[in-house]
Each structure stands twice: as structure tokens, then as C-alpha cells.
């Protein structure tokens, strides 16, 4: 459905200088700053996939999305969406895609939502029949009726996001781009939006590409994730695989009688493993200790068994590393360390 082949985007801007004298200097300088926002990225997305596109701020997520939607022209490489080059056949591509930018509405600020939809119906050349059907469907999944006649500027953020999503889906596009669709929303609305996206994907086999900072979105929706950092694609794979590869840390929390004694236990000696294979933290307040380790080096049962042999354990909790931590780790250290 979507092919991105060796795409790069470079932004060139005039160099900025510090301070007041710098401002004057900038006036006469012709020095340029080149910035590779996206650097040789390639990936393919199949029909019906929901793909999470993540990365820290300024990593190049939005730039990639904007190239796929036809807003930006790549400096190098090319995108094909449904066989169409968005930069060469902008209008044809636009008919095929729906776009929601969480930070900014695509709707007409002063018009009621109903009027915006009337205009969009004409722009996308939707037949009356298809339009009625779509409105009924969107109404069901997004409850647009609640604010259908309200001017867009008076909508709450959650309503606005639903409205924008509705507007992006009005023409039933096979591809839907969502740039931070849940930003700033409360949990209930987030849930509604996610449910709606899921339902649309299931019912119409819509391909969805979403960027987000909310790991919840990823866990709920995405079967596949792409991670971008400093303009380069550093991970492309399934969520399970990411967890499998990078989420091998386990953390076992045990409630014990004497935390001080437990914290000082020579676990490595008992297990016959080096001291740096694990990490013990004591939590005096909850009278518990937490042992964390890599599950490929130590086994959970091994650790628990060994501790229980030496002291009384009242309660046990086992935790996998959360996706958020994995992602944080990847942003901070890149992939090199892990590989």
C-alpha cells in the first residue's frame, strides 16, 4: 500500500546568531544551516496495517508523514501511496488519504461542523448516498451528533479531535495518517478515539499510520512499529518482537522481614553467577526488595527459589519491562548498545 524508498529531506535555513549584535550580524551573513530532518528512510506498509511511528521530538516523524501526504517534497528518494506519487499527483493522492494533525485542525475555524462537512462533501465529490452512509457510521463511532452544529472554534479539544477524525474519514480513504491523535486528551476520550480507529480499521481495512508520544496508543492499536531517531529509521518490526529483543529485563519484587539483611544477601554467590548479572534495591517503607536482571542470564524461578531458601518471603511480584521504558532506553542510547 505504501512504499517509502530511500527518502531524505533536508532543510536549509539562514544561520542564527546569539544576542542583539548577533541579530545584526545575521542580517549580513549568508551562512546557511543544513539539517537532515529525514535521512535515507525506507519501509513498506501493507494494506490494513496499523503502524505506529515513534521517535522523540524533532526526530523526523512529522516530516516523514508530511512527505507521504504530499505536503513536503522529498529532497531525495520517493514515496508511493497506493501506487501514486503524492508529489506528482497531489490531487489524486489526496482523494486516497485522510489526515489528522493533533496539534492543528484542518477544519474551518468559524464554521459549524455540519457546514465543514457539506464543503468537504463537495471537495471530495462524495455522492449523496455514500455521504449519508458515512455520516451514519461516523456518528456511531465518534458521536458527532453531540456537537454537529457547533462552530469548530467552540469545540473542546476532545470534540475537535473527533470532528477532525470524522472529517478525515468522510471520503472513506484507504490510508489514514494520524499525527499525535490523542495529544492532550483525557483518558476516556483517548479510549474512544482508539476504539474508533480500531473499528474503522476492521470494518474498512483502512491502513493507518500514526505518530504518537503515547505508548498506550501503540500498545492498544499497533501491530507494527517504526522507530525513528535523528532522521534515521532505527527499528522496524512488531511490538512483540521489540519486547522480546529489548524487553528482557525482569524485576522481581519480594516482601521480606528484614530489608537490610535481604538487600545485602550474596545472591550471586548462591547462584554461582557474577555480581553484575543482577541488581538489588531495598524499599524500607514497603519492607520489600526488588531484584532486576536479564531473563536470558538468570531465570525468574531460579532467583525466587534461591531467595526463598534463605529467607521468608511474604509476597512476590514479577514485572516485565514496560514498553515506555524500552522506548526511552532506545531514544537515550540508540540501538547500538543492545545489538
Amino acid at each position: 500500500m505504501i512504499k517509502v524508498e530511500h527518502v531524505s529531506k533536508e532543510f536549509v535555513s539562514a544561520k542564527k546568531y546569539q544576542g542583539l549584535s548577533g541579530a545584526l550580524k545575521g542580517l549580513f551573513s549568508r551562512e546557511k544551516v543544513h539539517k537532515m530532518a529525514v535521512d535515507d528512510i525506507s519501509f513498506h506498509i501493507k494494506k490494513g496495517e496499523i503502524v505506529g511511528y515513534i521517535g522523540s521530538n524533532g526526530a523526523g516523524k512529522s516530516t516523514t508523514i508530511k512527505m507521504m501526504t504530499g505536503i513536503l517534497t522529498p529532497t531525495k528518494g520517493k514515496c508511493l501511496v497506493n501506487g501514486i506519487d503524492p508529489n506528482k499527483q497531489r490531487k489524486k493522492n489526496a482523494q486516497n488519504i485522510g489526515v489528522v494533525f493533533g496539534q492543528r485542525t484542518q477544519l474551518w475555524w468559524d464554521l459549524p461542523l455540519s457546514e465543514s462537512f457539506t464543503i468537504l462533501k463537495e471537495i471530495y465529490d462524495i455522492s449523496d448516498e455514500a455521504y449519508r452512509e458515512r455520516i451514519a457510521f461516523l456518528n456511531r463511532v465518534l458521536s458527532l451528533d453531540d456537537f454537529f452544529t457547533t462552530p469548530v472554534r467552540n469545540l473542546s479539544l476532545g470534540q475537535r479531535m473527533r470532528a477532525d477524525l470524522g472529517a478525515a474519514l468522510l471520503h472513506n480513504p484507504p490510508v489514514l495518517y494520524l499525527d499525535e491523535p490523542t495529544i492532550g486528551l483525557d483518558l476516556v476520550v483517548k479510549d474512544n478515539i482508539r476504539e474508533a480507529i480500531k473499528e474503522i480499521n476492521e470494518k474498512y481495512d483502512t491502513t493507518v499510520i500514526l505518530t504518537t508520544h503515547d505508548i498506550g496508543d501503540i500498545e492498544e492499536l499497533c501491530s507494527r512499529i517504526l522507530i525513528i531517531d535523528k532522521g534515521q529509521l532505527i527499528y522496524d518490526g512488531s511490538l512483540a518482537e521489540l519486547k522480546e529483543t529489548y524487553g528482557t529485563r525482569r524485576r522481581v519484587t519480594m516482601e521480606v522481614k528484614d530489608t537490610k539483611e535481604a538487600a545485602a544477601m550474596p545472591l550471586g554467590q548462591w547462584l554461582g553467577k557474577p555480581e553484575d548479572a543482577y541488581d538489588i534495591e531495598a524499599d524500607e517503607e514497603n519492607s520489600s526488595i526488588a531484584v532486576s536482571f536479564d531473563k536470558n542470564q538468570l531465570q525468574v524461578s531460579e532467583v525466587i527459589g534461591c531467595v526463598m531458601q534463605h529467607m521468608e518471603v511474604r509476597d512476590i511480584q514479577i514485572k516485565e519491562t514496560e514498553l515506555a521504558e524500552i522506548v526511552k532506553e532506545i531514544y537515550n542510547h540508540g540501538m547500538a548498545k543492545e545489538a
Binding site: G70, I71, K92, A94, Q95, V99, R104, Q106, Y124
Partner: peptide, 21 residues
């Protein structure tokens, strides 16, 4: 401000979108 994005996303002549609006 980047608000010009919205014209780029619709299947309609960009200039006409601007003046129609």
C-alpha cells in the same frame, strides 16, 4: 505557521481553495 498544510491535503486546486475560502 504551517497552516497552509490543509490546502495541500485536499483534492482540489490549491489556488482556488485559497480564494474560495
Amino acid at each position: 505557521s504551517g497552516q497552509f498544510d490543509r490546502y495541500m491535503l485536499r483534492p482540489m486546486n490549491i489556488f482556488l481553495q485559497v480564494i474560495f475560502e
